[in-house]
Nucleic acid binder design. Sequence first.
DNA 1: CTATCGAATGCAACCGGTTGCACGTCAATC
DNA 2: GATTGACGTGCAACCGGTTGCATTCGATAG
Lengths: 334, 334
Amino acid sequence: MTTGKGRKDLPTMMDVARTAGVSKSTVSRAFTQPGMLGAETVARILEIASSIGYVPNHTARALSTGRYGNVALVVPDVANPFFPPLIRAAQMEADRSDFCVFLGNSDESWRQEDKLVDRFLSQVEGLVLCASRLTDERIRAHALKRPLVLVNRDVEGIPRVLIDSAIGVREAIAHLAELGHKHIVYISGPASSWSNQQRRAAVRLGARQHRLEVSIVAARVPSYESGRAVVPDILATGATAAIAFDDLTAQGIMTGLADRGVSVPADFSIVGCDDVLGAATYPSLTTVSNRSDETGRAAMSLLLDMLGSRAVGDARVTLDTYLVVRNTTAPPRR
Amino acid sequence: MTTGKGRKDLPTMMDVARTAGVSKSTVSRAFTQPGMLGAETVARILEIASSIGYVPNHTARALSTGRYGNVALVVPDVANPFFPPLIRAAQMEADRSDFCVFLGNSDESWRQEDKLVDRFLSQVEGLVLCASRLTDERIRAHALKRPLVLVNRDVEGIPRVLIDSAIGVREAIAHLAELGHKHIVYISGPASSWSNQQRRAAVRLGARQHRLEVSIVAARVPSYESGRAVVPDILATGATAAIAFDDLTAQGIMTGLADRGVSVPADFSIVGCDDVLGAATYPSLTTVSNRSDETGRAAMSLLLDMLGSRAVGDARVTLDTYLVVRNTTAPPRR
DNA sequence: CTATCGAATGCAACCGGTTGCACGTCAATC
DNA sequence: GATTGACGTGCAACCGGTTGCATTCGATAG
């Protein structure tokens, strides 16, 4: 118990009650059910409360009501530019309903994610897990304890918001085929990533339809560095075009190719995913675009709906994607 | 009271106590002061706890100890690329001490920021406010209630971590002067931003020292769009080089100039601030670089120190900056 | 054989709110 | 004038932990 220490003890309901000459209960009601009290009583209490700087204690309230007024948002990597717009939108959506948002960075690790979720569980009403690295089993276990919404992870029975890259990837393959490419390579992302699996599958399928040869090169972590690192592997495949798991990886690849004197798009074509770099790269990147902010908003909104009424069954929202052709794709060199 | 509803009631300490045949207190101690109990008792309790999926309730613990185990991090705009690395680093630093992090997006508005802080106050042990838009007075008022650390805001008596752009800006001016520029323009950011004030002052000072004429053009919000929007104003000044409040603004300006057929750096030189775009722009942006991640880590670390021992007086940490010369600066056209 | 002591555990109050129920008051009703 | 009901408020239990103090018990000392 840390009474003492001085200044850091906020005024409590009892303080207000005492100076107002009423009981705790009355003060409580003045805030939560003012209609139940005499009008002038309420006025007097609110007056006194604000004068001594009283704000109801969120924690105490949460404990007795079970309504925490908090939600958690967990992402693999805050600094991955795909997430900030999503985080921002989710945060603002939660804010509209007066919810506070915990942010967790799982650092691409399922252990870390599991730890965070456990830590959040007892102080939130629900959580949004983005691109979760957990097993289906763990996700289901957590979902049993608290309402849960997934982003870019498809677990049956758990509400989820999915960015359907398949559409955009299909467009990308068609685009490359049309340019005359015969052999492409997919640079994969984290193995446990649903997006990665979906994109890889879409590449395979599209390639078959267009009768293209397809190779796979693995970049474990989606980042500039790992993109740069896999360039030798990419060149070794003999492909003339690459579709990268995301824009960061694509950007790294571009640098790596430039280092080796391979010019884009003249010698090699590249397509990214996520469209997080805008037209900032040079050459500007052809990429599969999506609305990550809308994804965040939708996921949070879905979660809040669940908290309001238990009426969300097996929601599965998908948002579509589309190819944005810029300047990293061209016909293959003959 | 929401007992019922079924599955959403987490197991409590009493549940564990009952099946272990001990009292609440003993279970509590098994988690917080295991040395006080018999070794086998602790083992049995932990065993049972994990088997029924018990996790101590963060909220209840916070209420009785006053140690919330939470901190808040408030930024003006999560999606501004300056912040994600900072947020990430702060988050991970907090995590090392088992703290959970609330994230607030003030949306560049002091009202929103004030609201968020109030909402956080009663459930965190301390807060980090980044580039706060609040008045000194409000900041001081909040600091009275909870330990507070500021980032890029200099209020005496409140611990703060500052990125000292002055150094890098000075280098930038020297660089431009050396190239032969005589008239430069500073594109300012949010008026209430400390960074902006500091940068503007540094530009003025540096320009005087190098006998350069200096104009100021205001871009209210730091973003690509507003950079693009102020290009006419910039050209109207007759300057031959610009230093922008941040890289986003600089990038917008580059696009705006390109739209008008002004070529960079041949016709016009540009320097950004923050170095958040890496070498991704074209031409790659000359900019004043800093370590925003280190800033986040330092601020959170400082806050945690304050929580541990009250021994942080009037801390004022500054991190320095340096000019990174890339390809948007060149001698002025004669 | 008893006094003493330390280790292990239980009891109960407390943190700051919420809420079902009981109580008192006053006006309308019979 | 006694009954009734609505209204405004207080009492006390409860949410799920923590912790000072009391209690129990076996072991060691006298």
